[in-house]
Design a protein around this nucleic acid. Sequence first.
DNA 1: CCCGGGGAAGAACATTAGTTCTATCACATT
DNA 2: AATGTGATAGAACTAATGTTCTTCCCCGGG
Lengths: 210, 210
Amino acid sequence: MRSVKQKLILDFIEAFIGERGRPPTVRDIVHGCGLSSTSVADYHLNVLESEGHLRRDKHVSRGIELRGGRRARPGVALVPVIGHIAAGEPLPVPASDTWSVPAGETLEVPEALIRGKKGVYGLRVRGNSMVDALIGDGDIVLMQAGVSVANGDTVAVWLLREKEATLKRIYHEGNRIRLQPANSQMQPIYVPADNVEVQGKVVGVLRLVA
Amino acid sequence: MRSVKQKLILDFIEAFIGERGRPPTVRDIVHGCGLSSTSVADYHLNVLESEGHLRRDKHVSRGIELRGGRRARPGVALVPVIGHIAAGEPLPVPASDTWSVPAGETLEVPEALIRGKKGVYGLRVRGNSMVDALIGDGDIVLMQAGVSVANGDTVAVWLLREKEATLKRIYHEGNRIRLQPANSQMQPIYVPADNVEVQGKVVGVLRLVA
DNA sequence: CCCGGGGAAGAACATTAGTTCTATCACATT
DNA sequence: AATGTGATAGAACTAATGTTCTTCCCCGGG
């Protein structure tokens, strides 16, 4: 939440729903928060959505739904989906406990999936390097940062030299590390231990079938 | 409440608010209750308002507010996990819309996961007959009952004669049906179409990694 | 049989409300 | 100074949505 105005909007929405039983329109927000134009409200709403504070249904009147602590729903946890994995993109990892939700999607997952765990985030899987671990293209893996990893765990690793992130099974072999794809078509990668940074460990998988 | 249609509308409004967190539009009601015209919905809404079952804000979109004890809790859907699949056990399937949650586990999933879908239930997967579809032993599959299935869909079928339930890909081939395991080790099963009862279709997969 | 009322259809109408476009301004960075 | 980003304005455009009107159908009572 960057500005006080955005907190004002969020509070207004919460109050509006509480009083009227339905979400406000963009123009309700304009009037209620003393804004000057619908585009201003739209602008801030988009910011708030990208930060995961609310969700908007496009082209639907009053299509605002509050997210997060304000509308804490029992049994549902909010997990930020911070990017893709198995592509060569940089992979920022939030702090273990308190993170500022980075711009991007926020996913609701059943509490049961991350029971008690702290520092859980989501990654969209690209590619099929882990199909033998029943993780396919398009799946969302739930990662946990800052936990000890054991041989054979599926982890997201950051290769310092190559500046690449991938999802692999990890095996410590002396002072080198074997990164094993779960795909019979692909070969393991061997890297020196000091070239590897473990970003997180897979604790769950989520898939939506069309 | 004079007619059953009016009770239908009332129930729909309650469910809609529960799922989407906002009241339905007149046209939402038309579609959701199978009405033929907005004027019909308007007519019944006026009746319901005059009887005190709800309140309408004139000239306001989604200006419906339920009255009385009816209250809805938005955001969370309760999905009953009603058994295992790929074992030879009987597989009771609840009715499509209103089910009394059967004794057993209930999983709370975000509405976002099953958005709009009716008759969703969960099954714990036993065995590895679907590993090539990235569904493994211990996973929970979210099934939807009472929907049309297309060739290649992963469905839970009940074999009437054999009294067995399994999770397979389904292919209609004339008047017989091919049930295709997603496992290169296993052979397809061919059964006459009248021996098959489709219990549901996979709409999602949840896995908890130890 | 005629009639009145509850219901239903379908189209039309009038706003409401979401979205987009362009322009502007303050402020920080290069 | 040139540039880029966050934030603001105002208006226009389109789609969504509430409302109204007319016609028609079915059915029980007079």
